[in-house]
Design a protein around this nucleic acid. Structure first.
Length: 122
DNA sequence: GGGCTGACCTACT
DNA sequence: CAGTAGGCCAGCC
């Protein structure tokens, strides 16, 4: 029975494709943490793989990698790094607010995005 | 083949 | 609230 799954067994590249698809589905102005992305991609518990998938993402894909932060709502880069500033600038340009260097994941999750559209920003 | 590292998470102390 | 411990998996010596 293993031979049947041989064709459908996930190669590393296919796993990245799935992660990228989920990330592309994050609407502007929203953020998800690595664990959520992993879960939505069908790999619960494999949050680390998401980070690697983003790092290995081709540039031509226009992947909104900046909409993925860690579970604490913080950017997973040293604040002194240029990557941190780039990610933060992109997020703030989309309306994501930082308080004390952290994002309120409940307020800026895709689920709450619809509420903001209907009820307006609180 | 083994060991370390890392764009991580959860649970517990 | 901070710190620790265990888990997870892909890359790179």
């Amino acid at each position: 029975m293993n031979d049947e799954r041989k064709k459908t067994s996930d190669s590393s590249d296919d796993r990245y494709q799935r992660v990228w698809a989920v990330v592309e589905g994050i609407p502007a102005g929203c953020v998800l943490n690595y664990g959520e992305v992993a879960r939505l991609a069908g790999y619960p518990g494999k949050a680390r793989m998401v980070g690697m998938a983003l790092g290995r993402a081709p540039r031509g894909r226009n992947l909104p990698w900046h909409r993925v932060v860690n579970a604490q709502g913080r950017i997973s880069f040293p604040e002194a790094s240029s990557r941190y500033r780039t990610q933060r600038r992109l997020l703030e340009a989309e309306g994501v607010e930082f308080e004390d260097g952290a994002i309120d994941l409940d307020r800026f999750s895709p689920g709450q995005a619809l509420d903001r559209l209907l009820w307006g920003p609180h």
